[in-house]
Nucleic acid binder design. Structure first.
Length: 276
DNA sequence: GTCTATGTTTGCGG
DNA sequence: TCCGCAAACATAGA
């Protein structure tokens, strides 16, 4: 669910809602394992009184920077959401961590599948250090991407999903980027021509930026879908060309989209546009 | 009721 | 290094 554009959308929402400068007055922990590295009482004690100086994203992590030099890293995994709610609203059973702010609002970590994690640390590099480059940053150039791909004898799709290779892509945006670049997900990275490297580089940045511009992708209409911190659905689903469009027409050539499995992940391709 | 699939990541064994 | 698989969990849909 939450990939780079969705995580960025949440961060944008939190900033827009004026959280920077706010203080965390107290915290409640309702599912211990959501806290990666601390016992609940330690977590609560350490986060109480922290002043938020910045909120940002790295890969699929939401990061709160505190004046004290500590950082809160939040990973939503499959089903996590960060919701901004009034202090008075009743706690949903899937809200596992609640941060009470010094106004009347809460930041609540809602996570039905409980895979998500929050880590409060003064040394975020132990978690963020191994991550690959940010695909939308200025220093992620075609030349750098070329170098990265040249040495990898791995299939494109699992490679692009590998956060230590490149940060932020998930199943949806990888399928979309590969379609846009007309590349087969099983193609071996090191065998790409320089033209294809360029196409892929552009396609990745393109689909991610489009996702952010549309405030993320929400599929279906169920409760289990992506919503931002202010509970808004994303509008990017209409821009998906292949993902979950099995048996529908390829927007480029009208061929029926096929669903295959690559690295245990469902994968959508146009068999005509994306030859191996 | 039962079975299957699910957008992520990590850790294991080969 | 790389790959395949299982696990962490809960829910929706067939």
């Amino acid at each position: 669910m939450p990939e780079l554009p969705e995580v960025q959308t949440v961060v944008n929402d939190l900033i827009h809602a004026g959280l920077i400068g706010n203080t965390i007055r107290d915290a409640g922990v309702f599912w211990n394992k959501t806290i990666g590295n601390l016992y609940p009482n330690e977590f609560t004690a350490k986060i109480t009184g922290q002043i938020i100086t910045n909120i940002r994203r790295r890969a699929k992590y939401i990061i709160f920077d505190f004046e004290s030099g500590m950082h809160l890293l939040i990973h939503l995994r499959m089903s996590g959401r960060l919701q901004l709610l009034p202090n008075s609203s009743r706690r949903d059973k899937h809200e596992h961590i609640i941060l009470h702010l010094n106004d009347d609002r809460d930041v609540r970590f809602h996570d039905t599948r409980k895979f998500g994690r929050m880590t409060l640390t003064d040394n975020p590099s132990t978690i963020l250090g191994k991550l690959g480059p940010e695909p939308l940053s200025d220093d992620f150039t075609i030349t750098q991407f070329q170098k990265m791909l040249k040495t990898k004898n791995r299939q494109l799709k699992p490679l692009l999903l590998d956060q230590n290779f490149l940060a932020g892509l998930g199943n949806i945006y990888v399928d979309e980027a590969l379609w846009k670049a007309r590349l087969h997900p099983l193609k071996i990275a090191s065998t790409l021509s320089s033209g294809k490297v360029k196409d892929l580089h552009q396609a990745i940045r393109n689909v991610l930026q489009q996702g952010i511009d549309n405030q993320g992708t929400s599929l279906g209409d169920g409760m289990s879908n992506f919503v931002s911190a202010e509970r808004q659905r994303g509008n990017n689903a209409e821009n998906l060309m292949v993902f979950r469009r099995t048996d529908k027409a390829c927007p480029r050539c009208n061929t029926k989209i096929k669903r295959i499995v690559v690295g245990q992940r469902s994968t959508h391709i146009c068999p005509k546009c994306q030859k191996y």
